[in-house]
Amino acid sequence: MGKKSTNEMSFLDHLEDLRWHLIRITVAVLVCATVAFIFSGFIFEHIIFAPKRMDFPTYKWLCQASQFLGINDTTFCATEFPFKIQSRQMAGQFSADIWTSIYSGFVIAFPYVIYQFWSFISPGLHINERRHSRGFIIITSFLFFVGVLFGYYVVSPLSINFLANYSVSIEVSNEFDLSSWVSTIRSSCLASGFVFELPIIIYFLTKIGLVTPQIMKKYRKFALVLVLILSAIITPPDLASQIIVAIPILILYQVSIYISKVVIRNQNKKQKAHV
């Protein structure tokens, strides 16, 4: 039997359809997580622990920028960080390896996750809406990966540099737990990845009538405050880091206003065409 059309499907049919999409997503993430677990040595050595070394690209760029501005006494130009990473729990390293593999699997499988999500909601859209949204998976995945890279190369090193060099007394030495280190890298990357999905979120909110360009412009000042608060949450509490993180978010907000305008304009054209 062929698959029922959206109009013929009952609520239970929709739940059954959703269940199979979730099963496919879970299997894809687990497969990618297994691959990540096999290459976990490479992931930890060249990705997770890379921001711990001063030859990390971000530190080099910031060191050069500081020297260009005449700031020679900066932690970005140090030879090494004054801390060690330790595992204080019996299963600490194993747990870190497993969870890192799972989150890595999710990041790797993200385009397929979005594809499954889109496959579930697209039957409820009009033919024209499906045609105009063919690039949804590509654009969503692109924004997510750009956000993850931004979190890895900007948010993570700024946070690590600040927190690693912060000291209340010379009597206290920094010995970070492995789980705390991995959590810092993971949260920075995933939070930035989801923040960069703002244009996609605004697109759908505009489609269903909850957001308009006028509303976004009216509350731009409040959005600026929220962006600064968000920047303060995901970055260390120094002004320079917050500004560096806030700039791309503000650009995304402005792009979202333009996207909202395009959606409204297309909707108005359709209404005029049917009159």
Rank of each mutant, 00 (worst) to 15 (best):
W20F: 12
L226W: 07
F11K: 15
C189L: 12
F106N: 00
E175T: 14
Y152V: 05
F39T: 10
Q214H: 15
L226A: 11
K52E: 10
L22Y: 09
I200K: 03
S188L: 02
F81D: 06
S167A: 15
F222W: 13
Q267H: 09
I244G: 05
L125W: 04
E197H: 13
V275C: 11
Q242A: 06
F120Q: 02
Y166G: 13
Y166N: 15
Q116R: 10
S95F: 01
I137W: 02
S167F: 14
I201F: 12
F120C: 03
F204N: 02
P51C: 06
S95L: 05
V148Q: 00
P82C: 01
G151L: 04
A232N: 03
S187L: 06
V146N: 04
F142K: 08
T184Q: 05
W181H: 02
D177F: 00
R19D: 07
L190A: 09
I251L: 15
F150N: 00
T212G: 08
N161D: 14
L239D: 06
I160S: 05
L239F: 11
L252H: 05
F194P: 02
I121M: 05
I259P: 05
D55P: 03
D238A: 08
I114L: 03
K221D: 08
F81S: 08
A91F: 13
V35L: 06
Q67K: 13
H21T: 10
S192K: 03
V182Y: 00
F68K: 14
Y103Q: 07
R220F: 12
I244K: 07
F56W: 04
I121N: 06
D17T: 12
F37I: 01
L69S: 11
R53H: 12
E171W: 11
Q271T: 13
F106S: 00
V172T: 15
G124Q: 03
S192W: 02
Y219L: 10
D238C: 08
S169A: 13
I202G: 00
L125P: 00
F68M: 12
L250W: 13
S188F: 01
I257T: 09
Q116M: 10
Y103W: 14
P237W: 09
Q254I: 14
R220H: 09
D97W: 09
A50W: 07
I229G: 09
I121G: 05
A96P: 00
Y152F: 13
L178P: 01
T34G: 12
Q93N: 08
L224P: 01
L226E: 06
K270I: 13
I121D: 07
Y152P: 04
I200V: 12
F110C: 01
L69Y: 09
